[in-house]
Amino acid sequence: MIPAPFDYVRATSAEHILELMAQHGDEAKLLAGGHSLLPMMKVRLASPTVLIDIASVPELSYVKVDGDDLVIGATTSHATVANSDLIQADAPLLSYAAAQIGDPQIRHRGTIGGSLAHSDPAADLPMTLVALDGTFELLGPSGTRSVKAEDFFIGYFETALEHDEIISAVRVPRRPGVGWGYEKFTRRANDWAIVGIATVAGRVAMANMGSIPARPVATEQALAGGQGIAEAAALAADGIEPAGDMHATTAYRQHLARVLTRRALETAASRNQA
């Protein structure tokens, strides 16, 4: 399968990316690892006429500590996030989630910013960043603004990014020793989640329980009110009505949400050293 024709241009700096976006407008798409975009282009679900390759912009790939936060450059690969000593120590949920994406070859190419900007509700990272209470730094012509992960995802493949903005960095609070849990239910190895759960520090976010990562508010309130895990997890699907599809009915997804939330919360409690 071959993508429709396009022009390819390689950006050399963050400033150069913005220049190229201004020059090419809405016909252009950003290319980082290409592991969401190229499969769509091969089946002609996307046919941009210009690809702006941002993968080799040096200032967008890093992992660093900034006070109480970890900051991860947008084009940092899933493999780097999974293997980073800093992230494993201070945000282990994030490194674990990155290691659950696809397979080793995919993790070598795919990037954290690319996966988040793609905003697939079944993906691993959007729910993980919502659970972590992460913040995205969005770079545009007038500078950088910060958007909370839970405000960033708007709908299926739709985000708070303006047409002239890019995700430049992802920021997560450093929480060494705080228990976390992660569950992904798939029918086959390497499939997308039928339902996924990420939890840390009493926050819970779910993959594929709607068009954006869902927060089971009733569960979080029950936990905050001192109820046990079993009681809180039983509320995980309250008020959440995911669509049914060929993989699972609405009721089955709600069942999975309750069961997986309980398991994730139990794991988080057993890991907690804080």
Partner: peptide, 15 residues
Amino acid sequence: GVSVKSCTVLTAQAD
């Protein structure tokens, strides 16, 4: 130096 699936990489990306 790292394994990739070459059906999902552009030649241009390998330049």
